[in-house]
Write a protein that binds this DNA or RNA. Structure first.
Length: 199
DNA sequence: TTAAGGATTGACT
DNA sequence: GTCAATCCTTAAT
């Protein structure tokens, strides 16, 4: 069961089922595992203007068109790395952006990487923070999340979740058209909603 | 070749 | 609440 099979659906269907999943990354420094509490879905078939893949495959987003279950890591504002879980069969771009989570293993290492965070819930509240805490680097783009140094443990049963407009995406105007942000209720590690500053 | 913008965060008023 | 940091990717000459 491979857990990988259900990732072949569009991200809009996959993202809510990834809530509560635990992603683990082992590096030279040690192991950090994070339970995902917040994700956003991005499609690439031309219907999603907020997606990097909206205008077709480019050098940067090629990973999103690849095998499901792999990691699409990208750089934004030059200071932050974010991680997506690639969905949909190879050839179709679709991904679930990991926006927030709770550190369940390797707290000390996560804290060391995120020295500015003040409390446990800030360690992975926000996409770039989560990537830093987990140890994702741009070089990890394309890595298989079901093979070392990564692993991905899916929840045994679906969780109850909430959904709403995506955060920080430009070019959507009314983001209500794309209520593809999913999060678990009552989780302090879910980032607060923020519109895009220029939207 | 050149110019414009960004799936954000952290610091400061 | 507002604003700067900072360089890579994409789109347009």
């Amino acid at each position: 069961m491979t857990d990988r099979s259900f990732l072949e659906a569009p991200a809009v269907e996959v993202a809510p089922r990834l809530l509560g999943a635990v992603i683990r990354h082992e590096s030279d420094d040690g192991v950090v595992a994070i339970r995902l509490t917040e994700l956003e879905a991005y499609l690439g078939d031309g219907t999603d203007p907020g997606s990097h893949a909206f205008r077709g495959m480019t050098k940067r987003n090629a990973t999103m068109f690849g095998e499901p279950g792999h990691l699409y890591a990208y750089f934004t504002y030059d200071m932050h790395t974010c991680g997506n879980i690639v969905c949909s069969p190879s050839g179709t771009a679709s991904g679930a952006l990991m926006r927030g989570g709770e550190v369940v293993e390797g707290h000390e290492l996560a804290r060391a990487r995120r020295s500015t965070s003040k409390n446990q819930h800030d360690l992975a509240r926000g996409p770039a923070r989560l990537a830093v805490a987990l140890g994702i680097r741009l070089a990890d783009n394309g890595s298989d999340l079901f093979a070392p140094p990564f692993s991905l443990e899916l929840p045994h049963a679906p969780f109850d979740y909430l959904s709403g407009p995506r955060t920080g995406v430009s070019g959507e105007g009314g983001t209500e058209k794309y209520p593809w942000r999913f999060w678990l209720p009552d989780e302090p590690s879910v980032s607060p909603y923020r519109r895009h500053p220029k939207a």
